[in-house]
Amino acid sequence: MTVQNDGIRAGTADKSLNSEGESAVSVSKLSKVYAGGHAALTDIDLDIRKGEIFALLGPNGAGKTTLISIICGIVNPTSGRITACGDDVVRDYRKTRARIGLVPQELTTDAFETVWNTVSFSRGLFGKKPSPAIIERILRDLSLWDRKDSKIITLSGGMKRRVLIAKALSHEPEILFLDEPTAGVDVELRRGMWDMVRKLQKTGVTIILTTHYIEEAEEMADRIGVINGGRIVLVEDKTALMKKLGKKELRLNLHTTMPAIPAELSGHALALEDDGNTLVFTFDTTAERTGTTRLLADLDRLEIRFSDLDTRQSSLEDIFVSVVGQSS
């Protein structure tokens, strides 16, 4: 299933996007077939708006990292075109790459370098003149200042992750890619990282993060894209997505155990759980008639009593599972 709402353009012609802001990254008709014949990406169209936090969700091997790698210049595209702030990432690579920062998924660092040197190196590599003041601010923001003279090999995994973020921020990019930023990071550190990302967004940085933690996307993102099998299957505003695809469950704790759903109730979307002690009714919040009143009336008529009831909104995780399930 492909959900195309107002924010997503179908082709390159739609400029109505500009009413909501210019795009930071624009991908059109992007495909990637690896030398072995594996089609990693197929016909990707995607627009990332300036200043937003965009979460790219997808199972392992969906093509998240390949997509990011192509935008950043690490992998060559087979076909298609990408622009960053209006400039082509292949033809004007100097301009676009200077604007982009990338935090890779793997903890790849120069083990024997000090934190200070490696971050300063990145700034230079990306064409910026040395600025100890900026490096200091970045290291302090990421709580790495105390360890600035430590060799990277002596740091913990969480610190190494922060070093990679510091490197990516060293040249003050306008667009930041975070590839699985919180993979293998403990809860506290994850919260800290989310705070940092929000702070960055406030300074005007566009953030694209890939994750397979739904919680992360739910917590952070303004918009969410779901990628599966190398295709974008959905792009939506997070709240709209939750509302649009959000199913609600009405759970009734039955007074007496029900062995099977009575035939009289077959017209309702019901399921029995908990050994016949809980009756679950699933309904669509966006539908004109949810059917709850009719169900309750029917239950009353059949004299089915319940001791408690509660409703539950489906999480992004449920949405994700259903979207990916349907697309594959």
Partner: peptide
């Protein structure tokens, strides 16, 4: 850098 993977930075840099 190819072995450790840090080459990603070189390839993504405006050089």
């Amino acid at each position: 850098p190819r072995f450790t993977g840090t080459i990603y930075e070189l390839l993504s840099a405006p050089v």
